[in-house]
């Protein structure tokens, strides 16, 4: 069984790579979202000509500035959609790793018994731990992806300020990926490798 566990450990290394990609994309998405929220926040101020002070007199600023901001807002919307599709690719990769992991077990000529699944050799994780860990990590990212899609698509020209900031902190927090649980899974898996 140790041979199988070692194979799973390789799979977890792949998961780690995918998760660091996820983190980078998550950071990018948060940045884009907060930029878009800032623009949405100041648009009502920008469309009021009386707010232009000294700039309102001569230049066509009062017309061009909101237009430029709306343009960059649209660009941000598109960029967020792109980031989301990159994130969905990460989720798909995690799903594939999990399914491959299940396949790994099924391909065994002699199916491991329930007690073998639970069995732990030294500090190494049990087979059950490995399969469960892969599935949990996939499930977390899948749920979080859906949440992100919902948050991003809720951002429209009609969004109110307080809603946007609440959703923004939700986006930053990633409630579906609790870091303690992630660390617990990896501690369990790394038990055999740490030395």
């Amino acid at each position: 069984m140790e041979r199988l566990v070692r194979k799973y450990e390789q799979r977890f290394r792949r998961v780690k790579e995918e998760m660091s990609t996820w983190d980078a994309l998550h950071g990018r998405l948060v940045k884009q979202y907060s930029n878009a929220a800032a623009i949405l926040d100041r648009l009502p101020v920008l469309v009021a000509v009386e707010n232009y002070g000294v700039l309102g007199n001569e230049l066509s600023m009062a017309r061009d500035l909101p237009a430029a901001q709306v343009e960059s807002l649209e660009l941000l919307f598109r960029a967020m959609t792109n980031t989301l599709s990159d994130l969905s690719r990460v989720v798909a990769a995690l799903e594939k790793v999990w399914r491959d992991g299940c396949q790994l077990l099924k391909a065994e000529r002699q199916q491991p018994t329930a007690s073998q699944m639970q069995q732990r050799v030294g500090p190494r994780p049990s087979l059950q731990d490995c399969v469960n860990g892969l599935h949990t990590l996939y499930q977390m990212h899948f749920d979080e992806y859906n949440l992100k899609v919902a948050i991003v698509s809720s951002l429209t020209y009609g969004s109110r300020g307080e809603d946007v900031s609440a959703l923004q902190s939700l986006l930053v927090d990633q409630p579906n990926i609790p870091s303690t649980e992630v660390r617990y899974i990896f501690d369990l898996i790394d038990g055999g490798e740490g030395k």
Binding site: V45, N51, Q69
Partner: peptide, 13 residues
């Protein structure tokens, strides 16, 4: 107005 000013500096329309 100050917000508009800063946005104008940022956007460089």
């Amino acid at each position: 107005t100050l917000q508009v000013y800063l946005t104008a500096l940022l956007a460089e329309v």
